[in-house]
Design a protein around this nucleic acid. Sequence first.
DNA 1: ATAACATATCAAAAATATTCGATATGGGGG
DNA 2: CCCCCATATCGAATATTTTTGATATGTTAT
Lengths: 103, 103
Amino acid sequence: METMHEEHSKVFKALCDEKRLRILEMLRNGEKCACQLLENIDIGQSSLSYHMKILVESGIVESRKDGKWTHYKISKQGSKDAIELLRKLTIIDFNNENDNCCK
Amino acid sequence: METMHEEHSKVFKALCDEKRLRILEMLRNGEKCACQLLENIDIGQSSLSYHMKILVESGIVESRKDGKWTHYKISKQGSKDAIELLRKLTIIDFNNENDNCCK
DNA sequence: ATAACATATCAAAAATATTCGATATGGGGG
DNA sequence: CCCCCATATCGAATATTTTTGATATGTTAT
């Protein structure tokens, strides 16, 4: 029960940093290698690597190694899952709705 | 352009903390006042107040004052907007897709 | 094998977020 | 008016996240 929230928060942690949103924006027009991303964002190489790891571990981005390059793209399945998760977290459960509050 | 990502990250920042996910979970079965939330989560009163502020400012939760109590509930519109935002951030723009990457 | 390159990892520093206790604010009851 | 209760805000302490520079790993070209 505790780890569930931890697991869920991982997805949103990926999205709550401005740099990572900028990276996602770049990935929206197709797969990019790390070097290309690095050219278009104002952070160092190791920082980029750190952010890419978080994005990949969230499932929203997937990576592919090709020789010395690493290519990244948005994962359709991961995105779908994230949207579904957000929907589930915010849907109101009318069956369970109770009104035993202070008044 | 910079503030856009800042604005967007606010929504996901609200969702990236385990305590706030726990609060959201409680709100899924109906409106609750702060005192009820406080009873069911292991944080202090001032901490709860801090988290509620973040949730409300993200738009996902709305608050209503009633005498000395503050009631909170999930905002349908806010949730809808958050889902739509996530969809937009992760949708791949095929028109713009380009493949000018290192190889 | 050596050199140049792309990326990942590490540890320490810096920046941010969260918690806590104290105090402030505002409402309702006596 | 005075007191009690619910919640908000503040500043300091603590915890977590992000950045940075150095170094490691693995790849390609010579």
